[in-house]
């Protein structure tokens, strides 16, 4: 069985989890395997939707002690489920939670682990993966050499495709509690509502923005396109009050949106490392020789303070992002 640890948010399965589930379905189909969607929590309302995305079985580990996230508690629950079902492959989305808990599960199961994979293949029980290394400056093809194989899938790379299956619900035994570290509180996000790593559209600003307050115009465009705002290291380091959580680049987030609009960003190697996985790149910069134009599908040499508001106006007029 291929097991996919899925995350729920407000009663719906998170999109990156559906992407992992769809990829698991493809791997299972070509190997004659079953797919189990695994849910952990105090309650798992909404889990049944996994059947629409290829889950033969919907496995639930439910207990009051799992109401708040605990890396060691959830790792125990997930590892126990892998053992109980005899799964040989465990996947999850490379979200903050996925990347927190799956390495722990892998260590617990003496399993090989690969993070943020962008490609997977399974043949004769052996998993191979493609994944960005050196912050996206290179890609590695790696092979597993362990009975259980654990990987997280990079959001926005695999496609969530409906593929209805039985989705038989089964309850699994929960760990007894006494966890070592537990989340007590979640402080709401100040900036972008959607994490940069999951966004389909990112409008990013660099030193050319000249001031933190000017990011307003990027916010307006992002909103019109249904996207979120990012920043280069230069903008974050400039002391404009742009939080590091918005930084795209080698020492920030590595992103792979469908559309990346770089505004006033020169295209330093450290920034490019974080966004070169974007499907389509647009560069807006007044310097025609800026290196960012080398990887932009579409370039506009011009003043971003004139071009960006025009883009927002046009996008709103066309009703894009609705």
């Amino acid at each position: 069985m291929i097991l996919v640890y899925c995350e729920l948010k407000d009663g719906s399965i998170r999109k990156p989890s559906l992407e992992a589930l769809s990829e698991a379905r493809l791997l299972a189909d070509s190997n004659g395997l079953q797919v189990g969607a695994l849910f952990v929590g105090a309650a798992c309302a909404g889990a049944e939707a996994a059947a629409q995305y290829g889950a033969d079985a919907i496995l639930q580990v439910q207990a009051p002690s799992l109401a708040a996230y605990s890396s060691d508690g959830y790792a125990q629950a997930i590892a126990d489920a892998v053992r109980a079902k005899g799964a040989t492959v465990l996947l999850a989305a490379a979200t903050a939670t996925g990347k927190d808990v799956l390495p722990r599960v892998a260590a617990r199961l003496e399993a090989g682990y690969a993070a943020d994979v962008t490609g997977l293949a399974l043949a004769e029980g052996k998993l191979t993966c493609v994944r960005p290394v050196y912050a996206g400056k290179a890609f590695a093809t790696s092979a597993f050499h362990s009975p259980v194989q654990v990987a997280t899938t990079r959001p926005n790379v695999f496609t969530a495709t409906p593929s209805p299956r039985a989705g038989v619900v089964e309850q699994l035994a929960a760990p007894t509690g006494g966890f070592l570290a537990v989340v007590k509180e979640i402080l709401a996000k100040g900036g972008a509502k959607l994490d940069l790593t999951e966004a389909n559209v990112i409008v990013s600003g660099g030193r050319g923005l000249k001031d933190g307050a000017n990011f307003q115009i990027l916010e307006a465009l992002a909103e019109a396109l249904g996207g979120v705002v990012g920043a280069s290291r230069a903008a974050v380091d400039a002391g404009w009050g742009i939080p590091h959580s918005m930084q795209v680049g080698q020492t920030g987030k590595v992103v792979s949106p469908t559309l990346y609009i770089a505004c006033g960003i020169s295209g330093a190697i450290q920034h490019v490392a974080g966004m070169s996985g974007s499907k389509v790149v647009v560069a807006i910069n007044k310097d025609p020789d800026a290196p960012i134009f080398k990887l932009a599908s579409y370039g506009i040499v011009g003043d971003l303070f004139e071009v960006v508001p025009e883009l927002t106006k046009a996008a709103l007029a066309l009703g894009i992002g609705k």
Partner: peptide, 27 residues
Amino acid sequence: LVTVQALELPPTRPEGRKLEGDPAAQA
């Protein structure tokens, strides 16, 4: 438990297109 079998540089992107005109036309 996991070994790298091949390391490759990302594919280079073809040179893109520059859009001409005034800001409204470019947009």
